[in-house]
Amino acid sequence: MDHERRGQWLRGVLDLCVLAVLLRRESYGYELAQSLDAAGLGPIRGGTLYPVLLRLQRTGMVTAQWREGESGPARKYYRITEAGGEMLRRTAADWETFTRGVDTLLREVATR
């Protein structure tokens, strides 16, 4: 995949993807990066991920807490807030509409 374009796409949706993963269950940074990779978004650098988490925390979309995990040392666990869930649902609907338009156009290319 074109590296630069992937970066551009990610920039637009990474915060939504993070919230979506957190909607499943609370998680910490490295685990989030693995989940996003597993979901097919490709490897996400820490330098990209943590600023997004900080922004989500600042705007009240997630809360964070340092806690001992099942294994290993303390990690900063993020949990989605009610406002975060609300925002995610609303934006997910918008995204649906938006991508439907993109899909329609790009599918024409593929079938031609």
Partner: peptide, 12 residues
């Protein structure tokens, strides 16, 4: 921020 980066580096 520094602590979180440290944990991330060790995990990854």
């Amino acid at each position: 921020v520094v602590a979180e980066a440290a944990v991330h580096l060790r995990d990854s």
